[in-house]
Design a protein around this nucleic acid. Structure first.
Lengths: 335, 335
DNA sequence: ATGACGGACGATAACGTTGTCAAGAAGGTC
DNA sequence: GACCTTCTTGACAACGTTATCGTCCGTCAT
């Protein structure tokens, strides 16, 4: 900046004014400064700039995801990016792989860089460590799962409602032995979906059979194995509610490997690529990760713009997409 | 930091020494400082810190992808993140949607924040605008596609070789009318794969039939439409080489919708989730986006560590995965 | 006792930028 | 011509941190 000022033969502050489009610079000087900027290929240092500005924003936010490479996370990421981009804000993204420690490390790194706000798909259960941060003015939005012991904005899907619809749909097609396959019970959404499953069974007057409930299925292999076990029970399930992506994929693989994909109903939570071209096509309860990301980012920016109203807890609806696998009847015939 | 110094009753510089684990602080003072830091929940401002440090690094890199939400990009992203994390470096990620302007904007934003290095899946053809940046010491690595008119490190897949293998495989199964479905010809990888397709046909002594080449298929709908057109030609292809993800998905949908998935061979470039459970399962030439990302990040950090040797142009191998769809013979029978 | 040495510590300048303010020029009013 | 107002411009301090260097104090050899 000093070089630009020297080359243009003006004071430092005049360059600053031009760079910031501040009024009160004569057209002649402005032209000279702009020429010098172009000639020296100068770009203002955003970090130094924000350091001096009173209460300055870094125009940067942090995003903690389960894994940037997983389709749910990355769709959410894209929606956050688009919303942020519209405001000239850049996004730091990080994966925490359901590790609470990694969540804290990531948020710590964000804090060191003085991000304006943080959007988190939380891995930990206790967020009191963020209280100071929040009071210091960093906007904070939790997505997909709620904050633990912290009053903060939240955006999630209707997990219970979706599970109720899913199980109700299977019951409606005549099933009474419906298996539940899910992720680690430490994960909020996994617990909620299990709750919905039990609620739906209860309201259909079906007793919960704990043998049909399998949790902790972190990857498709585990899920496939669980499905094979379930189907070799003396009184096997006639339908599977695979309450998470990996379970769905594992379930599909397991059913196909034993040739039962047309006999046993399968309904998944969360949509899967190519679900529509499989035979039978896979019925799912679809979340809208884009809407989750967009809503979270909009909430975050509203807070950054000074909205100090009470915490918001948005629940976005989910949609049943019937494609075939969820409409198989207990006798093994399609409807 | 001033508050910490005051509370601990020491000078500013002593706090700085403690924060940076510099030697020359007595244990007694260090303990006092650490207590004050904990009590005030203090965290050093990384931006201010790097501002003062001579030639300081921001411990931050920028990553320009086609779309953070697409599986190839996000797998690459994850590998970059992991490599960066191991060094305490945070990643800014952005999508440019094949828009050269957006690529420049993103890189400009990165530059404003003084990232240490940039990894790009480029959308533009001319990167001379990065020359100054590069000379100023910002490390620069191009992934998946080469830099345009700029001497810089590059990591990519063996597109030509993969296409040659793919088409050779189809020829080996008796096909002579093989259609090519691809992305925009402005995209380097699309051109390379088309080149490999033509080379393989030439070496098999098959004349190129331009009617069987369809490009510009930006989404599955366009690809599906193109496949339907191809199959209604008077002399239709007996095999499809879908040279990109969207084309593969569109091709699968189109074949299924007209019931020809067991008659027409299909071989895709780039693997697809659930390709193995389809019937027939989809044969592909698989890239390794993780390896691309890891290699690119390692290259970047080697440069940041001061390696000033000549530019490297890595080409990573691809793998043929035969699952069934690519082994269908022209008469419509599996082998 | 003297001086040289080294280790702990803090005062001050500097990084690249913007906020504050005062100086100077230009123009208008009486 | 004296005075006021408005506009342009730059000097200087400050943001939170680290680099440099000097001060102070204790230790040890003479």
């Amino acid at each position: 900046m000093l070089d630009v000022a020297a080359l243009a033969g003006v004071g430092l502050k005049t360059v600053s004014r031009v760079v910031n489009d501040e009024p009160g610079v004569s057209p002649a000087l402005e032209a000279k400064v702009r020429r010098a900027i172009a000639q020296l290929n100068y770009r203002r240092d955003a970090n130094a700039s924000m350091l001096r500005r009173l209460g300055g924003k870094t125009q940067t936010i942090g995003l903690v995801l389960e894994d940037v490479a997983n389709p749910f996370s990355s769709a959410l990421h894209r929606a956050v990016e688009d919303t942020a981009r519209a405001r000239g804000v850049l996004v730091f993204a990080g994966s925490c792989d359901e590790d609470p420690l990694r969540e804290r490390e990531l948020i710590g790194s964000f804090r060191d860089r003085r991000v304006d706000g943080i959007i988190v798909v939380p891995a930990s259960e206790d967020h009191t460590y963020l209280y100071g941060e929040q009071r210091a003015g960093t906007a904070l939005v939790f997505v997909d799962r709620p904050a633990g012991h912290l009053d903060a904005d939240t955006v999630g899907s209707d997990n219970v409602g979706g599970a109720v619809v899913a199980v109700g749909h299977l019951v409606g097609h005549g099933h009474r032995r419906i298996a539940f396959l899910g992720d680690l019970p430490t994960i909020f959404t996994a617990r909620e979906r299990l709750r919905g499953y039990k609620e739906a069974l209860a309201s259909a007057g079906i007793a919960v059979d704990e043998d049909l409930i399998r949790t902790g299925l972190r990857d498709p292999q585990l899920a496939a194995h669980a499905v094979k076990e379930l189907l070799s029970l003396p009184n096997p399930p006639t339908a599977l509610f695979t309450s998470q992506n990996f379970s769905t994929i594992g379930g599909i693989r397991a059913l196909r490997s034993i040739g039962l994909e047309r006999q046993v109903a399968l309904l998944g939570f969360d949509d899967v690529v190519l679900a529509d071209v499989l035979d039978p096509a896979i019925s799912v309860i679809a979340q809208d990760p884009q809407a989750l990301g967009r809503t979270a980012a909009e909430l975050l920016f509203r807070r950054l713009d000074g909205d100090g109203s009470q915490s918001v807890h948005d629940v976005l609806p989910v949609t049943l997409i019937a494609r075939g696998s969820g409409e198989i009847r207990p006798n093994g015939r399609a409807p």
